Simulated assay, not measured.
Amino acid sequence: MQSKDDSPQADQPLAGCRVVERSRSVAAAYAGRLLAAMGAEVVMLEPAQGSPLRNAPPLLAGSGDSALFAYLSVGKRSLVCNPHTAAGQALLQRELAQADILIDDTPLEERSAVNLDPHAVAERHPQLVHVSVLPFGASGPKARWCAEEVNLLHAGGEGYLLPNGLSNELFPDRPPLKIYGHFAGYQGGSTAAMCALAAWWAVPLQGGQYVDVSVQDATLSVGAFALQRLGDGSLEHRTTRRFRYGGVFETLNGYLELLTLEDRQWSGLVELMGRPAWALDEALHDPLERSRRGDELNRHIREWMARHRVEDIVRRAQELGVPAAKYRTPAEVVGGEHEAARGLFGPATLEDGEEVDVLVAPFQFRCTPLQRGGAVPALGEMNEEAIEV
């Protein structure tokens, strides 16, 4: 086992932190991914057949490997461990004894059988931070419910608000949708990672803690503004939830999003459109009047947008201080000038040796650049090493 002192990530924010991850969900795996990105040593405990995420779509062309798993596992280690056997249980307890944080999405009904009940874990490892990541949390009437991404997205309220804005205008008969990918899973994973760090930093004063993370709650928190409006007596819905003016617009060669919340931004937008007569109406100096006439303004803006190229609009908008951004393809994002300047993507080595670019992390540290790159671990690649210890 490589010591903490000679780790290649010794200069990273979480150098010296050891994490054991037992995950089958995106939420738990993403929590481990974020900690690994900050330099923690993350050991995935996998069954003999591997994590179910190893077969999760989308699959990479050629190899057929899971692109999702590749992203979620970069920089981690893999240890095959069957805690239902005596040898596997001994291996599990040894790993937990060396760990600072356990990330665990084992269903409640299975935890006692593998000695991962929170009380049993706390008794054996009193300094360990045990983070439970379940669809509806580990307590309450839904604690034993299963859920997929679409269930969690709607249980968290976002499904009630989709599609909205331009999508709802163009396709008013469409049923509620889900956001592409794993929006709820990533929200749950982000919450779990932050909770894990908060509890870990408190260990010297508090000792180990058990943290109960609900993916539904994490997703619900994203809609804080909608909840605030609900408290004020206003129930938002996908047919009414939109900016009074602005939002998504179709241009001559693509889509962009425009957001003008401040007077100076409205003035910049008027300048961007060449000071048309309709926009010079004195009444529109009042932001409340602009809100009241939002549909009228958007009709004018939409007509103007449709005659111009998205790149020209965004470039000029940035010069004038108008918040506007192009909707870009994944290839445009990975190859973007801004992303390259900030070093957002780094090379990841797949199991077959191929290199692909993946997002390093959704954050950066000013004084400590995160380590770029890493490898996708082969199933059980550290088992021989673990046996020798």
Rank of each mutant, 00 (worst) to 15 (best):
L128W: 08
M382K: 07
W145H: 14
L53S: 04
G268I: 02
A348G: 06
T251A: 11
R229I: 00
A67R: 06
T239Q: 13
Q127K: 13
T368V: 06
S73C: 11
G346E: 05
V20H: 01
R242D: 03
D352P: 06
A61E: 11
R292K: 11
L72E: 01
L252W: 10
G62Y: 03
P47A: 04
D11C: 10
F365Y: 13
E384S: 12
S267H: 09
N298A: 04
G380A: 11
G188S: 02
A67N: 06
A378D: 11
G165A: 09
D281Y: 11
L230K: 10
M305K: 01
E303F: 08
Q318C: 01
A90T: 11
D5W: 10
M194K: 01
D117C: 10
H338V: 07
V389S: 08
S167Y: 15
R229W: 14
G88F: 05
V334K: 07
D100P: 02
E110C: 15
G156M: 02
R124C: 09
L258P: 00
S51Q: 07
K142V: 07
V270K: 01
G157D: 14
L284M: 03
A193V: 01
W304A: 03
D212A: 09
G16R: 01
P163Y: 13
E169G: 03
D357Y: 10
R124W: 08
P126S: 11
Y210D: 12
G294A: 04
Q12G: 04
E337V: 06
V133D: 01
P135T: 11
N164A: 11
A193F: 00
S291F: 02
V121S: 00
L220K: 05
M44Y: 11
H119C: 05
A31L: 01
D286V: 03
V310Q: 09
S25V: 02
A331W: 15
P172T: 12
I103D: 00
N164M: 09
L252T: 04
A277L: 12
W266I: 00
G374P: 02
M382Y: 14
N168V: 07
A306F: 05
L108V: 15
Y245H: 09
V203W: 13
G343Y: 10
